[in-house]
Nucleic acid binder design. Sequence first.
DNA 1: ACATTCACTGGACAGTCGTCCAATAAATAT
DNA 2: ATATTTATTGGACGACTGTCCAGTGAATGT
Lengths: 217, 217
Amino acid sequence: MTKLDKIARLAEKADAKSAKRARKKDELADNAIAALKQLGYARTSLRDIAELSGVAVGTLHYYFEDKVDLITYCVRRYKTGFMADMQSILSGDVAPDQLAARLVKGLALSIRRDAETHRLWYDIRSQALFDAAFNDVVEEIEDGLVRLVSVFLSRTGHTDVEPGSAYLMLDAIFRFHLQKFLSGSTSAPAGFEQQASEILAIITSASKGSAPGRADV
Amino acid sequence: MTKLDKIARLAEKADAKSAKRARKKDELADNAIAALKQLGYARTSLRDIAELSGVAVGTLHYYFEDKVDLITYCVRRYKTGFMADMQSILSGDVAPDQLAARLVKGLALSIRRDAETHRLWYDIRSQALFDAAFNDVVEEIEDGLVRLVSVFLSRTGHTDVEPGSAYLMLDAIFRFHLQKFLSGSTSAPAGFEQQASEILAIITSASKGSAPGRADV
DNA sequence: ACATTCACTGGACAGTCGTCCAATAAATAT
DNA sequence: ATATTTATTGGACGACTGTCCAGTGAATGT
């Protein structure tokens, strides 16, 4: 066995080790998310999370620096998952003129299914207004979301619409109907679909690019 | 002195009494706001507020039911003040075609001057996603804001634009630039002004009413 | 086989929290 | 001047917080 082989073997072992650690970390994060999405950032204690994970509090500190580290990790994790979902909608081979409807439907479904998780995002984003420790995650995720909208706009041919503005519009409507949904309105997802489609039509038709709908035939 | 006089006298006294109590309550609320806008809902303790007010913790409970009562009172108080400011802008005798610019400028100024207070609103609105105790204040205030936008739209002749949608757009842009401003961007208010004007122009020009700018000559 | 690192526990620590209340001081009424 | 109501205090209460660490067993390396 050459020296190089030895090194490779060791590196492999180290990788397997850190991979195992990463898996456990993610497992803990998933449990933490389950707790956080019910209680929110401020009301969820490390003990809540530990109990739900069937683990001692100390174990959490073994995997995460502190509470902020744990929570930012959780938010990052669930939100990238959400973005991947949306990305896959945008990547599917759908006719450009139906992409808006697909996206809006996907978001409406996400309100229905993951409402409690989404509110955690808005909670953290608000916390960032007070605690700079959350600024990085928020900025990072928000950049990703803008990029997502960007992809949507370029796929539908509206390359001159400001992605930042379009993101803000969608986000505002999403947040609002999420709020309604969480306070009992079962029609909120449908309401989102309607209002989002409307606004999307307005801002894309104001663009000097191709008209929305069945253009570029 | 007739019996009626006596009753009137007593009622007067009672009013003066409760007026005094109300004044003190407002005074405490103002101090509480000063603390809350620095630390946010979760991190501000009743002791912080009491200390800043130069008063014992028990005194707070003498005027307010509990922490939630105190905080909702504070949010209501500062936000109605803000709405009155905006209302006065809309009520001033400005030409309709310049009203949008005035409103946007007023909001930009408010980012600059009251950024720390405004973030408290977004904090509470997020809390409402988890704690139903805040639902009423949030809904009440949000209704007021929509009404404000409604006034703006009718004064500018865009009676067919959905006030709810317009509010969401403005709110999203406001919140976003507030966030940038609080994390150090001094150009955020100007950015708000630009983006808000743009979006406002888009949604009002999509309306079937009069065109924005110098129409109706 | 033994030594070493890793994973995890459970409890101690030093606070902080909101709430409550008996005691008291100030204001008001009679 | 005295009785009564109102305003305020300061501390007790029990529960909860994030953090830290000595100790323990399991896994891994040699």
